[in-house]
């Protein structure tokens, strides 16, 4: 039915309107089999709307969309039977235990009782929840609920897994555990589509990503690509006492390729951060603190949109 070359998702000119509001304004995307693909952007960029259209739970307004080679408008149920969805907010069944959540969800896909019973055991293990199998889900921690939701999305052995902000609201330890699980899935050949407004998450997980802003795609490529194309090798961050920053801007601007003025700090883009820091000091500028780091996707986003990701 599908060949290796056929993209799992292909959108062209895809749009989504809610009344007068244009959430997605004509995007072109291709996701290939086996890759981890990211939608990076701030809240309201159109990431979730796009995800819902791909998940066949939201009809598109315009443009063309093919998921697993099929049209969601025509073959919604057939497509949904082969994808897994991890929504932004956990919607586990609070009237059921962890194990029952997996078993009953499998039954929604028409899987046999025997199959979902053994599948649930396997997935509880994968989600490291075997010792909580017969507990109610409400008292579970945020990280556990998230892992259970991911386990649930795998009950039908999907070809394609959609994760909408999988680690938002989790503590660092829970995020790392979750990333590990997602990385294992990727290794086992599952195609992942992830939305996130965390650049570190995108850098960790995604082979390729698009940066979305205001319903449009601002840039596309691998994280390294995007950084090389849209930012410098290093960034020098300077912090000042409140009120001191504005006077410094004209002094440091000639020293760097580009300067971004954030409310709490200045970002100086350059190939040589330490060199520029020396030059800053040589001109008598005394920041409260300074930091030289490598460019990240956050810088790419800032360059492309003039805003930080977590506005």
């Amino acid at each position: 039915m599908t060949t290796v070359d056929l993209p799992l998702v292909r959108a062209s000119g895809l749009t989504k309107h809610f009344g007068d509001f244009e959430a997605v304004r004509g995007i072109d995307v291709e996701v290939r089999r086996g890759e981890a693909f990211g939608f990076l952007g701030p809240n309201g960029a159109g990431k979730s709307s796009t995800m819902r259209m791909v998940a066949c739970t939201s009809p598109r307004t315009g443009g063309d969309l093919r998921v697993l080679g099929m049209d969601p408008d025509v073959d919604g149920p057939r497509i949904r039977s082969r994808i897994g969805v991890v929504p932004q907010e956990d919607n586990l069944d609070t009237e059921l235990t962890a194990r029952q959540n997996l078993e009953v969800y499998g039954r929604y896909f028409g899987l046999s009782r025997a199959h979902v019973r053994s599948k649930a055991v396997e997935l509880l293990d994968f989600a490291q929840l075997a010792d909580r199998a017969d507990h109610e889900v409400e008292p579970l921690s945020g990280g556990m609920k998230r892992r259970l939701t991911i386990a649930r999305s795998l009950v039908n052995d999907p070809d394609l897994l959609l994760l909408d902000e999988p680690t938002t609201g989790l503590d660092p330890q829970a995020r790392h555990l979750l990333w590990d699980r997602l990385f294992r899935l990727k290794q086992s050949g599952v195609t992942l589509i992830i939305t996130t407004h965390y650049m570190d998450e995108a850098e960790q997980l995604c082979d390729r990503l698009v940066v979305m802003d205001g319903g449009r795609i601002a840039a596309e490529g691998s994280p390294q690509d995007l950084i090389a194309r849209h930012s410098t090798r290093e960034v020098l961050e300077l912090r000042f006492a409140p009120g001191d920053q504005d006077a410094v801007v004209p002094v440091v601007t000639p020293l760097a390729d580009r300067v971004e003025v954030l409310p709490d700090r200045l970002l100086l883009y350059t190939a040589d951060g330490d060199g520029v820091l020396d030059a800053v000091h040589a001109r008598g500028v005394r920041p409260l603190s300074s930091l030289v780091r490598r460019s990240s996707l956050e810088d790419v986003f800032l360059r492309l949109t003039g805003r930080t990701l977590v506005d």
Partner: peptide, 14 residues
């Protein structure tokens, strides 16, 4: 409140 139906509609169920 439980968003139960959202979860169901992500499966082949309509």
């Amino acid at each position: 409140y439980a968003r139960l139906y959202d979860a169901m509609l992500a499966t082949p169920m309509g």
